[in-house]
Design a protein around this nucleic acid. Structure first.
Lengths: 237, 237
DNA sequence: GCCTCTTAGTGGTCAGACCACTTTGACACA
DNA sequence: TGTGTCAAAGTGGTCTGACCACTAAGAGGC
């Protein structure tokens, strides 16, 4: 009766049901591919594609030689695929992504100012030093920058927020921002933004944190807008 | 040298490269599965799994009998998988999701108040009537409610924001909210929230829109917190 | 010139085999 | 008794080749 959906798709739905019905819980192991295929009366190939699909979604995890397991189903697991957006996006979509970040990061930073533990602040401070210090490579600066923002959002205690924020950030874009600012001699402005955010967190001042985060995102946003306009006018190599 | 990654994973990376390098663009057709497999010197099965993975991510689209195509790569395409989070989440994670929405929706609604076209406002008003009117089924109310919020976010003109917001909403959760409020006789409060938001949009008053959206999300948030506490104390059928 | 229908080519599914890896427990040894 | 080794069973990963279901385009008739 339900011939519209493909065999594989039905298998996906069935496995989802097994999870939502509690037949298998987070971290638990599923029956073998061969068993599942036999149970639904489909070929192992089709079952494998269904499992591949759910693996991509972050719902399942296949361990070679050991079985297929349900992940912890935490936000970070399920939003890993989210990063594809930031990776693939270009031009105007990147501006849209930054606009979303301008809504989230200030609120998240303000929340972090109220909630961050002392240990959080120490860790964030250490990352700030790694950004400010003269690092060996540009890659290290990018890593520290990503870690800095990630640590702040994580210190809100909201794992979903952290996962969403991470999905809106991308290493390649971040590297492009630093390269662009370095070329123009504006890296000090970026460092100053970070310092201002950190100070607000240490002072446990949500309003100041919100303002500092807004300024930072808007700086990047304005830079990107200018960069995009520049590339449109002078399409170089 | 790179024997750590699986054959399928390599195929995924390779196809991603073909897209990011511009070898195939959005909407264009890829070579056949058989061709791609032969080109990378892997079996068709493995190539199919790679394609399945990218299909799940919203990067590719397979059309039976017609070929495999790159999607438009728009945010909505890539964030379709995002909804799995809202679907699977329960308990505390749902609270986290609402907390994120409390950061996004007020900002988005304020932006909509400034940017929405007259046509947008008409459409939003129509959806409001569908919520307020005496609908045949509860399902219709939920549909109209989802459409109402979606239309508002869409009228910001930011497709990424719309896609993210949609990913944070779920039909099942929304239905649960209405059912819970109906049971307690509080549906009027929900309707009043919506009316307040709509009025702020029509008045093109970003501040009022922000406040109205905040109130609305917080109402749902408080209801969920109470509901979760209630279920913990009285775990019924 | 238009419609119908065949047909080549595509993705979807199946079957069975073998490979790579993990886990476990029997076994020899200290 | 405890411990390390390693062989074997079972798992996911890959390959092959066949057939089915569907689409699109061209050949043919009208």
């Amino acid at each position: 009766m339900d011939d519209r959906t493909s065999v594989t798709q039905r298998a996906v739905e069935r496995i989802k049901e097994m999870i939502s019905s509690g037949e298998v819980g987070p971290g638990q192991r599923l029956p073998t591919e061969r068993d599942l295929a036999a149970r639904l009366d489909i070929s192992r190939s089709s079952m494998r594609e269904a499992i591949r699909s759910l693996t991509t979604l972050g719902v399942l995890e296949a361990r070679h030689g050991a079985g297929v397991y349900v992940t912890a189903l935490r936000p970070a697991d399920l939003l890993e695929t989210f990063s594809v957006l930031a990776e693939v996006s270009r031009g105007d979509t990147l501006l849209e992504v930054l606009q979303v970040r301008r809504m989230l990061e200030p609120a998240a930073t303000a929340l972090a100012a109220a909630r961050a533990t002392d240990a959080d602040l120490v860790r964030i401070g250490a990352l700030l030093d790694r950004i400010d210090g003269a690092p060996a490579t540009a890659a290290e600066t990018v890593t520290a920058d990503l870690g800095f923002h990630q640590a702040i959002v994580a210190s809100t205690g909201n794992a979903t927020l952290a996962a969403v924020n991470q999905g809106l950030s991308s290493r390649t874009f971040n590297a492009r921002v630093w390269a662009g600012h370095r070329e123009a001699g504006f890296t000090d402005e970026l460092r100053e933004d970070h310092r201002r955010i950190h100070e607000a967190l240490v002072a446990r001042d949500p309003d100041a944190a919100r303002a500092a985060a807004t300024v930072h995102v808007m700086r990047v946003e304005r830079w990107l807008a200018a960069d995009l306009a520049d590339r449109t006018e002078h399409p170089g190599a």
